[in-house]
Design a binder for these strands. Structure first.
Lengths: 348, 348
DNA sequence: CGCCTCTTTTGAAGCGCTTCATTTAAACCA
DNA sequence: TGGTTTAAATGAAGCGCTTCAAAAGAGGCG
């Protein structure tokens, strides 16, 4: 009945607000962006007009005019993987301190979508991009060596070191697991994981191998799997049983999921048990690693910290795009639990 | 040394491309948006200039000028919860068919951040928003009844039905679980979950209660917990043991995590086992529900379908914002597994 | 009261694009 | 070949904002 602003129909612009408040366009802009430049009375007038009209600033116009953006894009390889969610959380935490927002795009393990998402963010003119690919997918990117948008890599090293990046020392992680088992008195180790062409898997294996080699009397073999999911762990478990229980007294699994699969199969054998007969370590500190029936000793990747460090590197890069790319390597941490320590370890 | 375009320095604009190709600005635009209006030869010239200069269209400018956007915002309550990731996947699948992109923002269970994220997307002038809140958080939104951006709700019903929405029939899910247990011959049921003020939990309980009431001879009690994580399941398990094993012969857990916790505790008791002594159902079809040592019978929420339906509703709304809000309720599905069927059920 | 300084406010230019009324070139037909 | 259609290309207007030089207003002081 009245002529109150229509309900969310046409979105009011700054000009509408200015007219309604009886001030100039620039004053509205200042009220929002440089309030200290606007007299108290004026500011109040403007703010109440904004409220009354339900004005919402158009960020597309803002960033076009200002030539910068306050959002950062985060390209994640797989939202189903909690490691990437941790990265997102860490990045968000760090960026929120600088009043920046995070837009996440999910590539869902598909390299084509990763490229598409990268392009999407380029077009959107976000302030910067944090790219967390799955292994070697970046190679497929169209402008791998020279992206216009400031970019930081997580979990994968730029072959040319053209980008700043955050990685975790996978070799050290593998070594940590093997050393832990050896320290517990185990001698006949087996590494379970694959495929080997996955950089992370291969480095974990190399680390485990080296650590074992450094210890006379200990030996390690490898059982290559086709993936690192629970299913692959179960398959591997059956193969191990076929080789005869007692062939190995410890397993370094390439992932927590593999470890869970192994335990499910091995624990089915009467009179055989984890960890007394075979101690097992996982990798990733998957949420369920600590929650499963037999809490799994694991190597923890500092996902949140990686995200936070990546955010910091990105902010540096945005501030000075010309500076040399700085790379950070974080150390994984061993979290011993029941699957190696047995009853010595209790939850909580 | 040469004056080739500087490496990713200043981003070339359409005007640069036009100059380089020796055509008018509008022609470049047409090459990109209405190629059929441009002569073959011209188009090629433009395209090669684009490639040569490394031109990337500025979407902020595009959507400002065009007055529309090709991205949809997805506000997720908790990326750590695979249910929400499923929703994202479904929405993406549906929107990709219409060449629309999805930007995800994570509220991380914080209602304030949810509001902030909503505002962020409003400002970004995305084409529409799919909001998947955790329970009743929407009530905190500043303009709950009248958002300017087309919005669709997932997993939570708009109190005033002002928005289209997709929900799942939680009551039916609870009934499904209870009926299943009763059909297996169980009679002394217990519902474990909480807190009750969570709509979903309460409705699951109501459904279970009604289904049980419909069956003479069967009874159901409730054990309210403070949350629906594994920890809460373990706590509840200890309480149940304190009441004496045998008090109940079946449990309807409000979530898979609770079910896992319960099983961990109950299975520790010698001579007592799931499901022979107590059958247990979970809820959510969490990824680990089928992968845990005792695969858990569960009620599956069609997360991906919910996301896809939400996307369709949103597209409808974008096309005709004035149309009445349409709401869709999907039915959950019971997935019987070992935790109720025992050895009758085998993985795969 | 008048002059000078500091604070506010103004409004036009321009960010990079889409659109569309015009102009120009090509194609067709008698 | 001249006139008419149709296809292609042009370029100015304008999307909603930030910026900034310039104008206006407010104080301050002798």
């Amino acid at each position: 009945m009245t002529d109150t602003p229509p309900h969310g129909r046409t979105k009011p612009s700054m000009a509408d607000v200015a007219a309604h408040a009886g001030v100039a366009l620039g004053t509205v802009s200042n009220t929002l962006n440089n309030p200290e430049k606007v007299r108290e009375a004026t500011r109040r007038k403007v703010l109440s007009s904004i409220a009354e009209l339900g004005f919402v600033r158009n960020d597309a116009a803002r960033s076009l005019a200002a030539g910068n953006s306050t959002s950062v894009g985060l390209v994640l390889a797989d939202l189903g993987n909690s490691f990437f969610v941790d990265i997102a959380r860490g990045a968000e935490r760090a960026l929120r301190r600088h009043k920046m927002d995070v837009l996440i795009v999910n590539s869902d393990v598909d390299p084509d979508r990763e490229v598409h998402n990268l392009e999407l963010l380029d077009r959107s003119r976000v302030a910067g991009i944090i790219l967390a690919p799955l292994d070697t997918a970046l190679a497929k990117s169209p402008h791998p060596e020279n992206r216009a948008t400031p970019t930081v890599l997580v979990n994968f090293e730029s072959p040319s070191l053209a980008y700043p990046g955050v990685t975790v020392d996978e070799r050290h992680g593998g070594a940590l697991a093997a050393s832990h088992l050896i320290a517990l008195g185990r001698r006949r180790l087996l590494f379970v994981g694959g495929p080997r062409f996955l950089t992370a898997v291969n480095q974990r294996w190399e680390g485990a191998e080296q650590a074992t080699a450094a210890h006379p009397g200990a030996s390690i073999e490898i059982l290559e799997t086709r993936g690192v999911n629970i299913r692959h762990g179960r398959d591997a478990g059956r193969q191990i049983l076929a080789r005869g229980p007692g062939t190995y007294d410890a397993i370094v699994a390439a992932s927590d999921l593999v470890a869970i699969g192994l335990i499910q199969i091995l624990n089915e054998v009467p009179g055989f048990s984890v960890p007394s007969d075979i101690a097992i370590t996982g990798y990733d500190n998957n949420h369920f690693a600590s929650e499963s029936a037999i809490p799994i000793s694991t190597v923890s990747q500092p996902g949140e910290e990686m995200g936070a460090v990546a955010a910091d590197l990105l902010l540096e890069r945005i501030a000075d795009p010309a500076a040399a790319a700085r790379s950070v390597t974080l150390e994984p941490r061993l979290l011993p639990r029941t699957s190696t320590l047995g009853e010595m370890w209790r939850r909580d």
